[in-house]
Computed example of a mutant assay.
Amino acid sequence: MTDAHTTRPGGDTPDPVTRAAALLRGHRESIDRLDAILVFTLAERFKHTQAVGVLKAEHALPPSDPAREADQIARLEDLAVQADLDPEFAKKFLNFIIQEVIKHHEQHQS
């Protein structure tokens, strides 16, 4: 049986390769769980932005709100700093999402 507790022949020390494989597997399992969280979180976010798009269309509001978008980007950059995430990456990520939301809002306008 090979797992993180496998020892080398004649010793009590775990085999470094087996230990590394177990650590790698653990990190990958965490990444997979986090990816699922991201997907479900984005889906929930887009449900709300779709509802906003419908409201904007019903009330003849523009699909884009540059002031809100700028506030959101600044807020996300602050959160990124707090989370020890590259704020430039966070900004690019949110800009991508905002562009997708605007496209959806424009579709509701048609």
Rank of each mutant, 00 (worst) to 15 (best):
S30Y: 09
H104E: 13
H105F: 12
A4S: 03
F46Q: 13
A60N: 11
R75D: 15
E29W: 02
F96E: 14
H105D: 02
A36L: 05
P62Y: 01
Q72P: 07
Q99D: 14
R33V: 04
A22Q: 04
D35V: 11
A83Y: 03
L61G: 01
T7S: 08
S110P: 11
D86N: 06
Q72I: 07
A51T: 10
D86K: 01
E88D: 11
D35E: 08
L23R: 13
L24G: 10
G11I: 04
Q109C: 03
D3K: 02
P62L: 03
A4N: 03
I98F: 03
Q50S: 13
D3I: 04
D65I: 04
Q72C: 09
K91P: 12
E69P: 02
Q72W: 00
P16R: 01
L24C: 11
R8E: 15
G53F: 10
Q107M: 15
L34F: 05
Q107L: 15
F46Y: 08
K91V: 05
L85P: 00
M1V: 08
L38I: 14
E106Q: 10
Q72H: 05
H108T: 06
L79G: 13
L34H: 10
D71S: 08
P16S: 05
Q72S: 14
E58F: 06
V54A: 06
D84I: 00
D35I: 09
R25N: 11
E100I: 06
P9C: 00
A4Y: 05
G10K: 02
E88L: 05
A4G: 01
R68S: 08
Q50D: 13
M1I: 04
K91A: 09
L55I: 07
N95H: 14
I37E: 12
